[in-house]
Design a binder for these strands. Sequence first.
DNA 1: GATTGAACTGAACGCACGTTCAGATAATCT
DNA 2: AGATTATCTGAACGTGCGTTCAGTTCAATC
Lengths: 195, 195
Amino acid sequence: MARKTGSHAEITGPKVREAALRLFARHGFAAVSMRQIAAEVGVQAGALYLYTPDKETLLFELLQSHMEDLLTAWEAEQKGDMPEERLEAFVRFHIRFNLDRAEAVFLSYMELRNLGPENFRVIEDLRKRYETELETILRDGQSAGAFAVPDTKLAAMAIIAMLTGVNTWFREGGRLSRARVEEIYWDMVRKSVSA
Amino acid sequence: MARKTGSHAEITGPKVREAALRLFARHGFAAVSMRQIAAEVGVQAGALYLYTPDKETLLFELLQSHMEDLLTAWEAEQKGDMPEERLEAFVRFHIRFNLDRAEAVFLSYMELRNLGPENFRVIEDLRKRYETELETILRDGQSAGAFAVPDTKLAAMAIIAMLTGVNTWFREGGRLSRARVEEIYWDMVRKSVSA
DNA sequence: GATTGAACTGAACGCACGTTCAGATAATCT
DNA sequence: AGATTATCTGAACGTGCGTTCAGTTCAATC
């Protein structure tokens, strides 16, 4: 070996992904060069290819691990039994998780088109799984008479779009705290599906 | 002159903008080359510079004219007097207009970061003017006791995000008609701001 | 202290980029 | 018919791209 066994590689690998995530989110996938990423990491461009086979795969892995983190975190969430509790948990979770990972969220909404067809489908499937989580809550609530939504699929899309929109305007230390934002959105969502 | 006075120019100019809009929306600003746009128009790359000083300005003018069309169309809309009527008009208008111009909408949400600071500010101001239109409706409705929104600014952002989200999933000829989609979204929005 | 091999450099590959511009083309005007 | 000029071509400019790879470095191992 060389350079402290499993040391530089275990440091540089994550640094590459962090730099790529930040730069892709800021400037867009196509506008960021491998050389820029390398410079951010403090390494020459060629060295990046020890950590990714190519640029598209680097993007794909960022998106994939983001979506998997999202699903894993949601599964681990305390959810309650009643439809209204479950919906509230989803709303608060989505806002909280997305604000914590604004760059990855931005990426996975904007840069899907830079993936090849197979990679695209993988991310799309993960996204659909997440959307189905919300739709299931809405359908169960509808059956139980707790909600009155004309179309659960559409309502799921509408709610997710509304919640994800927080990322476009929320600024830490601004007029509203995260907790307050969660409250207000939950209020609007609750009413929007109410009977 | 040459080539039928004011003929080719009046044809090629719009064709350039149409091709640029379609390609930018499909592949992203940075990923589309001037040569691709030229090929779509049926002309050499150099000829594009008769119609735009540079690539960024081409993007800027697409975004600017889209936002101005949006504001103009909204001003021309029948709006009613009561807060609830005005809100309904906004919801239906936004969905209808955005579905009709999906590519331009996509562009103006995704490619703002490719503008220089001055151009960016121009588009941001136009967008803010549109958001303020909705916020005014909500504030008036709140004052009149017709709505109960904890924060009109936030509610405006939430509603616009929700409505714009239609563009990500709606497909012509799909399960739901435009009219039905308008109905359902109006139902959700109405309830979400209800007292 | 010699050997090993993971980690990285630095230069190179062919290619495409945005933009410029001298010159060709052809519809209109005199 | 000849002059004019809006429109467009085709080649070129320097630059930067993604990717490859032979060679260098040096901590860990024996």
